[in-house]
Simulated assay, not measured.
Amino acid sequence: MPTVAPLDLTGHIVTAAFIGDTPFFANANGTIHRLDGGEKVTEAHEGLLICIRDPHSQSLLSGGEDGKVLRIAADGSITIIAEAPRKWITQLAAGPQNAVAYAHGKSTVVVLADGSTKEFAESRTVEGIAFAPKGLRIAAARYNGVSLHWVATPGQPVELEWKGAHTSVTFSPDNRFVVTTMQESALHGWKLDVKPGSETRHMRMTGYPAKVKSLSWSPKGKWLASSGAPAAIVWPFSSKDGPMGKAPQELGTRANIMVTSVAFHPAEEILAIGFVDGMILGARLADGKEALLRRPGKGAITSMGWSGNGKLLAFASEAGDCGVVDISA
């Protein structure tokens, strides 16, 4: 079995992620912990609500109850990106060219590298945001669908409509699909690469017993893994129409113990699967082969993040029992 280096923190840990070879753990109380020659702590927020790894730079982005959007560097130093007094920052996205987006209420705000901002008003409260992998384009999930905005050029947004509450949004790495999680324990997707003037095709991905809280794309975007069932539900996206008319794979099935977090390996089609009881499994898509990465712990797995070389996996739980798994051991 791989070796596990445990780290016991107090409280709900929102995010586990690597910057380089250093694991970071973001605590809901507003502190950021990193294992860098011992445990080091950065006081970031008065109540942390969201923390994400910026895939375009060696940093994390965080938002809090104090209305601040922060960038946290590998050495733990902090830069304030934006401040929205009396607002709770629950949505964040990292874009190309050092762009950062955050949302509050019915507004999506994009902060560009030069510090200038663009604000986009939505018809309903913004529940999730994401940048497209190519071009400076942002998606905002809301009630009854998603709005797509080009950041640099004025014009009307593209509206992707589907009735119901959409709670988060993601683009496929190849830019061909947009997928949302929904309040009703389902995913919904739209195909973007349609001929101009023709209607956007969409797809429903249903059958989940619980709400989907975690999504992860495989390295080349052929698969989308999701939580919300007693197995990781992995949808195929390699064909022209993605998962339309296709059944998903189920990995790491455990009778009635729910998957709470999923994280694809950065280079291989191997999926880390975290469960409500704190167990973590590794599963290979090609043959479904499984390996136990961590035995059950004190609380549900809330987040997992791979190191750049894919040899280490940081994990966090809602009970504060965190750690790093060395899969090369």
Rank of each mutant, 00 (worst) to 15 (best):
residue 64 G to Q: 02
residue 64 G to Y: 02
residue 64 G to A: 07
residue 66 D to E: 04
residue 66 D to Q: 05
residue 67 G to N: 03
residue 68 K to E: 10
residue 69 V to G: 00
residue 70 L to R: 03
residue 71 R to H: 06
residue 72 I to R: 01
residue 73 A to N: 10
residue 74 A to M: 06
residue 74 A to E: 02
residue 74 A to I: 07
residue 75 D to E: 09
residue 76 G to V: 04
residue 76 G to E: 01
residue 78 I to C: 08
residue 79 T to Q: 11
residue 80 I to L: 12
residue 83 E to H: 09
residue 83 E to V: 14
residue 83 E to M: 11
residue 84 A to H: 04
residue 84 A to Y: 03
residue 84 A to S: 00
residue 86 R to T: 13
residue 88 W to K: 15
residue 91 Q to C: 12
residue 91 Q to W: 06
residue 93 A to K: 07
residue 96 P to A: 15
residue 96 P to W: 12
residue 97 Q to T: 13
residue 98 N to H: 15
residue 99 A to K: 08
residue 101 A to H: 03
residue 101 A to D: 06
residue 101 A to N: 05
residue 103 A to L: 03
residue 104 H to Q: 09
residue 105 G to E: 00
residue 107 S to M: 12
residue 107 S to W: 08
residue 108 T to K: 01
residue 110 V to Y: 02
residue 110 V to E: 05
residue 111 V to R: 02
residue 112 L to K: 14
residue 113 A to V: 09
residue 113 A to K: 10
residue 114 D to R: 14
residue 114 D to N: 15
residue 116 S to C: 08
residue 117 T to P: 07
residue 119 E to L: 08
residue 120 F to E: 03
residue 120 F to H: 01
residue 120 F to G: 00
residue 121 A to F: 07
residue 122 E to D: 14
residue 123 S to Q: 08
residue 125 T to M: 09
residue 125 T to R: 10
residue 125 T to F: 06
residue 125 T to N: 10
residue 126 V to I: 05
residue 126 V to S: 00
residue 127 E to I: 12
residue 129 I to E: 02
residue 130 A to H: 06
residue 130 A to I: 09
residue 130 A to F: 01
residue 133 P to D: 08
residue 133 P to N: 08
residue 134 K to S: 15
residue 134 K to N: 14
residue 134 K to H: 15
residue 136 L to A: 15
residue 141 A to C: 14
residue 141 A to K: 03
residue 142 R to S: 09
residue 142 R to M: 07
residue 143 Y to N: 14
residue 145 G to F: 00
residue 146 V to D: 01
residue 147 S to N: 15
residue 147 S to C: 13
residue 147 S to T: 14
residue 148 L to T: 10
